[in-house]
């Protein structure tokens, strides 16, 4: 079409139309952009300046109410609140727990979701369908209900301990431990990951799997060299979203986790509300934000790589 227009000498008008339509497109996307900027971007900026000791303007009231506030000592601010946080052994313990729970839960979620997706793709049948359907049920159960269900199942007076006590086995109490947070996190994160990874694995064409088999590859080889690399982007997306979600989770660690150390989501809330230390709370939030940004970079890299492979860029 474009070459036809060029031949008829209408390229210029096409270019003008193109530029006009791109402006129109930009105008259409402006309202949500402004909304995100107003409700997310500006609060982030204000919060960040407060963590650096900018206590005037929109931060004036919270600076008066909060305790252990460090006003800025240089034109760019101060790292005093950051120093507070990193010298607090509670925070270091919380950070380690948060990272460990996030890593372990994410790996478990991806492994389970991938196993179900591969079973569904390569074996199929009624069992696979039932399993895939059951595995997304938690998506429809509110997190607080799930947390309570896990509590009554694994708690000191829960089902598991009662059941095993009847046969003379002392089953450990898992609630108020990091294990319970992992169980809860896997339970709540699994459905989304299964949906995401299943769609990625299902999208691998039959012919690509069959051609690998035709070349002599065993099922394991087909999975490791063809299916997983081709479904890499949805796997990374599912992993990124799962990790970011778990890292900032609140309900599950609050209901099921230990008091100390605890996940940073709970600790941020404690510092903000119970301890009235909003500046330190914001510092912790930015540390979580930085860690999540690292995961987001992985997500973007994966998307770019996929686009390059498919010749889109």
């Amino acid at each position: 079409m474009r070459s036809l227009l060029r031949r008829t000498g209408k390229e210029g008008s096409l270019a003008n139309n193109g530029s006009g339509s791109s402006l129109f497109g930009f105008a259409l996307s402006l309202p949500p952009l402004l909304l995100v900027l107003g409700f997310v971007g500006i609060p982030i900026l204000i919060g960040f300046t407060f963590s650096l000791g900018f206590t005037k303007g929109p931060n004036r009231v919270i600076a008066i109410i909060g305790q252990q506030i460090h006003p800025k000592t240089h034109w760019w601010g101060t790292f005093a609140a950051y120093s507070d946080v990193f010298h607090d052994s509670r925070f270091v313990g919380d950070l380690v727990l948060t990272l460990a729970v996030t890593a372990i839960s994410t790996v478990l979620v991806i492994v389970i979701a991938l196993a179900i997706a591969l079973h569904q793709r390569l074996v199929g049948g009624r069992t696979a369908s039932v399993l895939a359907t059951l595995s997304i049920v938690p998506l429809f159960v509110p997190v607080v209900i799930s947390a309570w269900a896990i509590h009554t199942f694994y708690g000191g007076d829960g089902f598991m301990r009662s059941f095993f006590a009847n046969i003379g086995i002392n089953f450990p109490t898992l609630t108020s431990t990091s294990t319970a947070i992992v169980i809860g996190s896997v339970w709540t994160s699994l459905p989304f990951s299964i949906l995401m990874i299943s769609s990625g694995v299902q999208a691998v064409p039959d012919a690509l799997i069959e051609s690998a088999k035709d070349c002599g590859a065993s099922t394991l080889k087909v999975i490791s060299t063809v299916v997983v690399p081709l479904a890499q982007t949805p796997i990374i997306i599912a992993g990124s979203f799962t990790a970011i979600g778990i890292m900032g989770s609140f309900t599950i660690p609050l209901f099921l986790g230990p008091n100390q150390p605890t996940m940073l989501g709970v600790e941020i809330s404690n510092f903000f509300g119970s301890y009235n230390r909003p500046q330190q709370s914001l510092v912790m939030a930015f540390i979580v934000f930085l860690a999540a940004s690292g995961i987001a970079v992985l997500y973007i890299w994966s998307n770019v790589k996929s686009a390059k492979e498919n010749g889109r860029i």
Binding site: E210, S211, D214, C215, L230, Q232
Partner: peptide, 20 residues
Amino acid sequence: LGPEKRPSAMVFQNYALWPH
């Protein structure tokens, strides 16, 4: 025998080349 064990090789209709 499964395809991985047969002494045959196939060229698929849509070529089935692995894009990665």
